[in-house]
Amino acid sequence: MTEPTAAAPLSDPANRPPRNQWWDVLDQFRTHRGALIGAIVFIVMVATVLLGPWVWSIDPTYIDIRARNQGPTFAHPLGTDQLGRDMLARMMAGGKVSIAVGFTAMLLSLFLGTLIGLLAGYFKNLDGPLMRFTDLFLALPLLPLLLVMVMLFREALSARFGPETGVFILIVVAIGITSWMQTARIVRGDVLALKEREFVLAARSIGTPSRRMILRHILPNVMSPVMVSATLGIANAIITESALSFLGLGFPPDFPTWGRLLFDAVDYLQQYPSRVIWPGLAISLTVLSVNYMGDGLRDALDPRIRGR
């Protein structure tokens, strides 16, 4: 074994004989009813969003002005919007973008938050600078900051990666680097407490260097709060993206996302409330199912709860 230590203990393949510990994790996950339902709902949503357009092949941007503002019919199960575009097709196209943005932005903010929290908590001399840096970000007014970022970088990124990918990258990065602070604070607090535990001292008496100390002993033990902020982060990212789209700073106006559908429909709230309800329901369901999944995953990853 040349690099035997970098793996987290749960994924450590060193101890094989009986069975892989991930099976225990899966078993525990399956006993958590909420998590199971959440996972099923989430998988159904993702499958609909990804595979749906092949079944329901109406172009979400096709304008049929004569069929505008329709209620549910067989031709348009969720009705049409004020320009006669099919709502079901728009929901599926929008869902793809919203879920992708939510997940990627969450991963980015989680990575940043965990990294900064770990470094600040573990290395005493980094604590001051990094936490002041975090405070600085917390004190920044986020919406103006996002606006400035979009203003400055949209053109450049669009030119480099094409308008849609460019905006996607911009939005993910913008949301990611403005939402990691909570995670960083939570992780730092936990690391500070963990650092004083005797098993860390025991590892030091063995001669474990800092890098492996963090990966082997600290990181697996801060997974619970990280998991919670991950699930909350997805919700936040989807909603922030909606807000940006609403302000006209996200994706181009004809490019559907759940947030944009929602805000487009707000003008017609009195006449056609169903147009608000569908994207709202989709956002809520995604967020809720992800929260439950995170809850179950957190329990399943904790060996003290597993098997109970």
Partner: peptide, 20 residues
């Protein structure tokens, strides 16, 4: 407190062996 709650017994006892 001196045993990492997220490691199995084999990986706890094996940690010094991993390191040295």
């Amino acid at each position: 407190a001196s045993l990492n709650p997220r490691m199995t017994l084999a990986s706890i006892i094996g940690e010094p062996l991993d390191e040295h």
